[in-house]
Computed example of a mutant assay.
Amino acid sequence: MIINILAAGGTAAAENQFGLQQALKEGGIISQSVFTILVIMSVVSFYILFSKLFEQQKILNQAKRVRTSFWNSTSLREGSAKLEKNSAYKQLVDDGLAAQEQHSKLTDPVEAHDWLHGSLARSEAAINSKLGGGLAFLATVGATAPFIGLFGTVVGIYRALIKIGASGDPSIDKVAGPVGEALIMTALGLVVAVPAVLAYNWLQRRNKSIAEDLSAFSNDVLGFLASNGAVKPAAAGPAPKAPVKPAATTTAGQAGGVQTRP
């Protein structure tokens, strides 16, 4: 019994002599640095993913409130007061109102439409730029993480071959283990890169949808300002209920078919 336990323990030790810990130990400072870089890339990528999802969902919720209540207001200032303080849509409205006030102070003749359109476009671009923050890092991780992992693999294979050559025992069991162990870094690079690429594409698609909605709202604000409030979209609120018709009442004489005279 004891012999069997010792034999099993020896087999487990032989099986565990190759792995991530051993690869980091054998790879030295280079493999450890590659592993650390990949871990940092992965952590930051997931942080960007969740923070951007939260930011995007916040703007999407703001868009729902704009469609249902904003255009019921009689003026843009009244509608702006209904929006959240840091709302992207409130920023567009406030920038449009500020541009309208500034136009009268211009010394060079500039068309009001062009001035308002430029101001709203600049505000819209600032919002989109903020939404796109961090996506470049995801793209960089997706493009470089596999090569960083491959670099760790190359260094690991190089060190393994040097060690095998120095030992003078080029048998398959001495070569396959260290070389296979070095491939762990390539696998880690792919594990880090694939989620980053998926997150980048998903966030980009959501940003595009938000940008289209902001552009449509910006055009509506421009039309309202250029027409002094005569042009504005209909609010997408709940449909009004049809008035209930009162039930027809009949007199006793009418019910009996007898007409009465006053």
Rank of each mutant, 00 (worst) to 15 (best):
F70S: 08
L92I: 05
K105L: 14
A14P: 03
Q102G: 07
D220S: 13
N219I: 06
S167W: 14
G133I: 02
K130T: 13
L203V: 08
V258D: 03
Y89C: 07
G168I: 12
P240H: 03
Q100D: 12
K52W: 01
G168N: 09
S227I: 02
M41L: 04
G118R: 02
Q17A: 15
V221R: 02
S31I: 04
A126K: 03
L120M: 05
V258R: 02
R261P: 02
L222M: 10
L97V: 08
E111D: 15
K163S: 15
L135C: 11
A247Q: 12
P243G: 10
L161V: 04
G142E: 06
Q22M: 15
P170D: 03
S119N: 01
Q32P: 02
V110A: 15
P246A: 09
G253P: 00
V258F: 06
L188P: 07
D213V: 09
E26T: 06
F35V: 05
A12R: 04
L190H: 00
A176I: 09
L225G: 00
V191P: 05
A63E: 12
V110F: 13
L214S: 02
D94Q: 11
D108Q: 12
G19A: 12
V175T: 08
L97W: 13
T260V: 10
A193M: 04
G132Q: 06
D94C: 12
A136G: 14
F35M: 12
R77V: 10
Y89D: 11
R206W: 02
E26Y: 11
V110N: 11
V191Q: 05
G118Q: 05
A125F: 03
K64C: 09
A193S: 05
K163W: 08
Y47H: 14
I3S: 15
L49E: 02
V155A: 13
Y89M: 11
V221Y: 03
K105M: 13
G142K: 10
F151R: 02
D213L: 08
D213P: 04
Q21E: 15
K174M: 05
K82I: 10
E78C: 07
L106G: 00
T144D: 00
K25S: 12
P146S: 11
A234F: 11
S171R: 15
I2G: 13
A248D: 12
A252V: 03
D169M: 09
S87A: 01
I127M: 04
V197I: 12
K174C: 00
S69T: 07
G142L: 11
K52S: 14
N86Y: 11
A230V: 12
A126I: 08
H113L: 13
R159M: 15
K232N: 01
T107G: 12
W115P: 01
K85A: 15
